[in-house]
């Protein structure tokens, strides 16, 4: 989940534009990490050393590793271990942003370091659940939203479910506190019990068709009852999995109400509501959530 939140961090810092980020995200599936980006990430080379080796590569037909070793920036064994290293997604995203000219290697080195420092995560090469929770905590903190631990757990699962069932090519934008919201088309599900949740997903009809196609693994071409059912199923599945987690981890029993559609109204929301837009290449999905 580092890639999604690193993207959100870059937007928040106005280091890149939405279009640049979107272009870099779309290239993620085809991209392969470069040795220089990885060496910089592991603090084996500085950004200027990487730039120098890249410049030499334009004049000499040699591999990056060979030049770096000949210049004394890396040893042969360091090159070997870098070639075997696992590539974190957020690093690939950063590299893509350098490739399309949105960032320089120096910018990327600085922003990665600042991001790592703000999230207080030492090793970003390995992702796990605790680190995801920490990322989401930081994400809300940077956005000035104070949320409780259950909300963080809910959001952690929601982002993981988006990755698992819809796709990892998204960036969450900063959450905004809300009292009311003019809906376009949204699906809603309420959860009651030891905590109350109102969960909504609002999006345009074209985005809904694409979201549903990905979730249901079907090729929808028009906005129909299958599209609506797909969105409701996603919400129901996510809330169902959250209720299982809360039951197992906190002995908290939650009751799900059937999901339903809402459209064309001004929604009056309970206290502690926020809207969190999530940008996919096919459009923006607004998550409207209330915890009380």
């Amino acid at each position: 989940m580092f890639a999604q939140f690193f993207g959100a961090y870059l937007l928040n810092k106005e280091a890149v534009t939405r279009d640049q980020l979107s272009e870099a995200i779309q290239k993620l599936s085809d991209a392969r990490i470069k040795l220089g980006t990885l060496a910089m990430h592991q603090s084996l080379m500085t950004a200027s050393e990487v730039d120098e080796v890249c410049f030499i590569q334009t004049r000499e037909d040699k591999r990056f590793g060979e030049i770096a070793v000949s210049r004394g920036y890396l040893t042969d064994s360091q090159v070997d271990s870098l070639l075997k290293a696992q590539t974190p997604d957020y690093l690939l995203l950063g590299q893509n942003l350098v490739d399309i000219g949105a960032l320089s290697n120096t910018d990327l080195e600085r922003l990665m370091s600042e991001y790592q420092s703000e999230t207080a995560i030492d090793d970003m090469s390995i992702e796990n659940n605790d680190k995801s929770v920490e990322l989401i905590h930081t994400f809300f903190k940077i956005s000035g939203q104070h949320v409780n631990d259950e909300t963080i757990l809910y959001m952690n699962l929601l982002f993981n479910d988006l990755i698992r069932f819809v796709g990892s090519d998204f960036t969450p934008l900063a959450p905004v506190a809300l009292e009311d919201y003019p809906i376009d088309f949204c699906v809603t599900q309420k959860v009651t019990g030891q905590m109350n949740i109102e969960s909504r997903m609002d999006m345009g009809r074209d985005a809904a068709i694409q979201f549903a196609s990905r979730y249901a693994k079907m090729d929808f071409s028009e906005f129909d009852e299958y599209v609506t059912a797909s969105l409701e199923d996603f919400l129901n599945l996510h809330n169902g999995l959250f209720s299982v987690n809360m039951s197992n981890q906190a002995s908290m029993e939650l009751i799900l109400e059937p999901p339903y559609e809402e459209s064309g109204d001004l929604l009056m929301l309970p206290k502690n509501s926020f809207m969190l837009p999530v940008i996919f290449p096919f459009g923006t999905v607004s998550l409207i959530l209330s915890f009380y």
């Binding site: 169902g240 299982v244 197992n248 029993e253």
Partner: peptide
């Protein structure tokens, strides 16, 4: 067949 597979 349900997504709410809690023990309860």
């Amino acid at each position: 067949v349900s997504s709410t597979g809690t023990q309860t």
